[in-house]
C-alpha cells in the first residue's frame, strides 16, 4: 500500500519491536518539554502524526477533534495523558529524530557561517 505520509509509516514500523509500557507522569512531562523545543515545522508534523493516528489507527470520525484537544488562540492544546501509549511512543521517536536533525543542521550552518 502506498502511503501519503511516509514518515508516519516509517515511525510506526520502527517502534513495532518496542515493548510499550505506560508513560509515567515524569516521562509525560519530559516529552512535553521536548515538544516545546521543536521548531514550527516540528510542531506541525507532531499534529499531523496525532491526526493521522486518530484517523488511521483509532478510526475516529473525520470531523472529531483528536483526543479531547482544546482549541486555543494559536491552534490546539493536547493533553499528553489523553493520548494512546503507542502514539506517545511514536511522537517521542519523531521528536528525538527531529531534534537530532535540528542539531545536525545547526552544526552545518554554523560551519558555513564561520567559513
Amino acid at each position: 500500500m502506498t502511503s501519503n505520509f511516509p514518515l508516519f509509516e516509517i515511525i510506526l514500523q520502527e517502534i513495532k519491536s518496542t515493548v510499550l509500557n505506560e508513560y509515567s507522569f515524569d516521562e509525560q512531562e519530559k516529552l512535553a518539554e521536548k515538544i516545546k523545543l521543536l521548531d514550527q515545522q516540528g510542531h506541525e508534523i507532531v499534529l499531523a502524526i496525532i491526526r493521522n493516528y486518530q484517523l488511521q489507527i483509532d478510526h475516529f470520525e473525520f470531523h472529531e477533534v483528536p483526543y479531547e484537544a482544546k482549541t486555543v488562540k494559536n491552534g490546539y492544546r493536547f493533553f499528553v495523558n489523553k493520548l494512546p501509549t503507542q502514539l506517545l511512543y511514536m511522537i517521542n521517536h519523531f521528536v528525538n529524530l527531529h531534534i537530532e536533525k535540528q542539531h545536525e543542521e545547526k552544526e552545518r550552518n554554523n560551519f558555513l557561517l564561520n567559513k
Partner: peptide, 8 residues
Amino acid sequence: KFSSPEIL
C-alpha cells in the same frame, strides 16, 4: 529513495 528529512 523518497523519504522524510528526519530519516537519514
